[in-house]
Design a protein around this nucleic acid. Structure first.
Length: 287
DNA sequence: GGCCAGGTGATGG
DNA sequence: CCATCACATGGC
């Protein structure tokens, strides 16, 4: 089935951005992505292929989406098809970041396929360089998850809750990381943590619930709000990538201070998530 | 070999 | 409440 949107929406840039993630099937030449979606315990592999341009975006979506309207709704959320990126870019017109929003006009936020996967991934990624972080996540998913049509689904929390830290250490998890990942899975199983109610909670309530878990600090909670729930106004001053991104944009010799970052970012609200995304993008692109 | 990595919790004041 | 430190392991 075909889906058309109002531009700008630069799917190719989005694909380039997420292709580093080894668990995503991304084909830059064919301009397509395959997503492992889980809905009501049922698994679907959804394929999305770009057929249009940034200004006039259109997509060919696999037929299973046509049969299940809830899948299209979920797909729209994940690919943030309902966000007006021109409006977002306009918001930054009179700020220091204006050039970023010209340079990467139409770059959308792409969400993780589900909240549990997002949470576990972010815990794994804490304080690790991206290369190793991706390798660990891949090893975890391919050891304990399952493959459908070439795409890897994460293991469910009930499975991870039963693992021992020693088993994860064999994948080169640190003891601490292993405990965190198993711990949040156990919290889901015993009902302490209910991810399904998160979409209806405020950023503050989600953060409160998440940071009460061992191994989940403010940074990880913000990442889940951003990449899991797609909330629009997340700024991550604790993130080393954001600090380096701002250092580059403002041409500083040192990383910016918290005070500087808070001052600058006030103007970016309520779209600070996009400031974060574009700062990361600007850092990863080779000049 | 040394510093760093898209942090967190524990400890001590 | 804050500053500092250990953690654990690979990348470069």
């Amino acid at each position: 089935m075909e889906v058309t949107l109002n531009g700008p929406y630069d799917f190719d840039k989005a694909l380039r951005r997420i292709q580093a993630n080894p668990l995503m099937i991304v084909d830059l030449n064919k301009r397509l992505i395959k997503l492992p979606l889980t809905l009501q315990e049922e698994r679907y592999v959804v394929t999305v292929q770009a057929t249009g341009t940034t200004d006039s975006p259109s997509f060919l979506v696999s037929e299973n989406v046509k049969e299940h309207p809830a899948l299209l709704k979920r797909l729209t959320e994940i690919l943030t098809w309902d966000i007006d990126l021109k409006m977002v870019a306009d918001h930054f017109q009179d700020t220091e970041l204006a050039f970023l929003f010209q340079k990467y006009l139409g770059l959308p936020l792409i969400l993780d396929v589900d909240l549990y996967r997002c949470l576990v991934t972010q815990i794994i990624h804490q304080q690790l360089n991206m290369t190793f972080a991706y390798r660990l996540t891949e090893r975890f998913a391919k050891t304990y998850g399952s493959e459908v049509e070439g795409v890897w689904f994460f293991p469910p929390p009930e499975k991870v809750a039963q693992l021992s830290p020693e088993e994860l250490k064999e994948l080169q998890f640190s003891t601490r990381k292993a405990e965190y990942v198993i711990g949040v899975s156990k919290a889901i199983m015993d009902g302490t943590l209910d991810l399904e109610q998160f979409p209806s909670l405020s950023d503050e309530d989600v953060t409160r619930q998440l940071t009460s878990l061992r191994g989940v600090g403010h940074w990880t909670a913000q990442c889940l709000l951003l990449f899991g729930l797609g909330r629009g106004d997340l700024f991550l001053p604790a993130d080393i990538g954001i600090q380096n991104g701002l250092k580059k944009v403002y041409q500083l010799n040192e990383k910016p201070t918290l005070e500087q970052m808070e001052k600058w970012s006030k103007l970016w609200s309520p779209y600070r998530s996009y400031a974060s995304l574009y700062l990361w993008e600007n850092l990863s692109v080779r000049e």
